[in-house]
């Protein structure tokens, strides 16, 4: 293990979560990782101020009920550790259902991971979803919008503007890439809702869907 005393080292960590861990809320997940890092006893860098917290940044919030396969977050350590070592030690300290897939030490162009996100890839399985996409989504003459209310304001999403690379895998399964990040972001549940609105899939099918975020696209990848 090579350890060089230096100030700050930014590591990008990629995790997967399976169904049993998919229902942990975003903030709870943040705390879960903070405790895992503490158990692993890494030399974490802390925030300044009243209530110092270990520095940890998620690339993109994750909704309750969504699995992930390669989801990035950044941590900053005050000593350089071997990436493989970090990965192993974290995996020894993580609860069931969450696994670290990859750890990278960032060396050049170090930017906050959140600012780099521009798209995400999803795979969704729900009753008749493939068919609905085939017959409805691909027929661009048919409208597909959804609106969402937040803090009294209504926002309308024109679904197709957010999605590229839509693929139908079988009758129930699809895969697509959607815009993600702070500029423009489409949540997969809203996509499903848009199809429920036009009665292409049932409400229950949407609620019971398996939703997997397979990848988050970062600028410069």
């Amino acid at each position: 293990m090579s350890q060089v005393k230096q100030n700050e080292y930014r590591y990008r960590i990629f995790y997967a979560r399976s169904e049993i861990a998919a229902f942990t809320a975003h903030l709870d997940l943040l705390r879960l990782f903070q405790r895992t890092l503490k158990r692993a006893d890494f030399p974490m860098a802390y925030t300044q101020g009243f209530n110092p917290r270990p520095i940890m940044e998620f690339a993109l919030p994750i909704g309750v009920g969504i699995e992930t396969r390669m989801e990035p977050f950044d941590v900053i350590l005050t000593q350089m550790l071997e990436a493989q070592n970090i990965k192993n030690k974290l995996n020894q300290n993580l609860p069931n259902g969450i696994e670290i897939m990859k750890v990278e030490l960032l060396t050049k162009d170090i930017k906050n991971v959140m600012s780099l996100v521009y798209a995400a890839e999803y795979e969704i399985e729900a009753e008749n979803l493939g068919e609905a996409v085939e017959t409805y989504y691909f027929d661009v003459s048919k409208p597909l919008i959804v609106s969402r209310e937040r803090k009294g304001k209504t926002r309308t999403f024109i679904i197709r503007e957010y999605i590229k690379d839509m693929q139908v895998l079988n009758q129930n399964r699809i895969k697509f890439i959607s815009k993600a990040g702070s500029q423009a972001n489409l949540r997969p549940d809203l996509f499903l809702k848009s199809l429920v609105n036009v009665e292409q899939i049932s409400k229950y099918a949407a609620l019971d869907a398996i939703i997997i975020r397979k990848k988050v696209y970062l600028k410069g990848d």
Binding site: A21, A25, V64, P95, N96, Y204, L207, D208, A209
Partner: peptide, 20 residues
Amino acid sequence: YPRAVLRQVENPAQYLGNEW
């Protein structure tokens, strides 16, 4: 618990265990 149920209840993680 069916996914559809977990998606409709508040704070589903409380029922699922798998804690450290």
